[in-house]
Simulated scan of single mutants.
Amino acid sequence: MKFHVCGGLDAPDWILANIVTLSTLPAVKVKLIVEQILQRILEGEFNYDNVMKLTGDSTLGESDVKACIAVLHFFIASSAKFDVEESTLARELQQLGLPKEQSDAVARPYWENKEALQSKFLQQSLQLPAILVGAWQAEIGESKKVIMRLTTSNKDSEKVKEGGNKDLLVTLTAEKFQTLLHELKTARALMDEYT
């Protein structure tokens, strides 16, 4: 079965193996652990001792608690990544075997912090300066190679000032250049569909 929270794929086996363990925790404790995970993602602070105290009266061992934390972190992070609605998250958690109360204990705090989560993940995503093709030329002869000079578009960045960024020369055979050009045009067409 495919799940939105898993990016339209099947749930990973480790999630399925640990969902039963997570379902043994009361909904109130699940909500408190979710709040600790949200604090970890948004502020960088995680009170592991507090989580261990919360689960101290349960029959869970330390490895089980760590597994529950990992499962909850996966659901929260993936839900934000794939822009999952609160009702969809709760429904899919129930389909995976988590009782309704625990599912709601995960979905509600996630929904209240969804925009902050997405903003935080966007800040943490890899961002590179745009690369422009400064010049290119085709060699005529038996080698038939295409030489491209690539430069970054962000000329006033600190790395350029320090001499860290330099032009990059790329040499391709004519066949590889045609393949690259075709793939770039395909990627551009796909991007244009979503804008």
Score class of each variant (00 low, 15 high):
T173V: 11
L181E: 10
R40A: 15
R108F: 09
L126C: 07
T55H: 09
Q36W: 00
Q123E: 09
I15H: 06
P12C: 06
F121I: 01
Q127C: 13
S157R: 09
T55F: 03
Q36F: 08
L150P: 05
K66Q: 08
I69L: 08
A107C: 11
V170W: 14
V65H: 01
W111Y: 15
A174N: 14
D167Y: 09
V146E: 05
M191E: 10
V146W: 08
A135D: 10
S79A: 15
G56S: 01
T24Y: 07
I140R: 13
R149P: 02
T21S: 14
K120D: 01
H182R: 08
L96C: 09
I37S: 01
T88E: 10
Q102C: 15
V146M: 12
A116T: 02
L89V: 13
V160Y: 13
E85L: 05
I131A: 14
F3V: 07
Q94W: 10
F82D: 03
M1D: 00
L93D: 08
A77H: 07
I19H: 02
K31Y: 04
L98N: 06
S125P: 04
C68I: 07
T179S: 15
G134W: 10
W111S: 11
P99K: 05
E175Q: 07
C6V: 04
K66S: 11
F3L: 14
K2A: 08
E112G: 00
L38F: 01
H4L: 07
K144Q: 15
K185S: 05
N50D: 08
L117V: 02
S23P: 04
Y48P: 01
T173F: 06
K29I: 08
S103R: 06
Y48R: 11
Q178L: 08
T21H: 02
S143L: 11
K155I: 10
I147L: 12
Q118M: 14
V84S: 01
S79C: 12
T186N: 08
A174K: 14
V71L: 10
Y110N: 05
G61I: 13
R188W: 02
G56K: 10
D10L: 08
Q127E: 11
I37L: 12
E162L: 09
E112S: 12
G8E: 01
A70N: 09
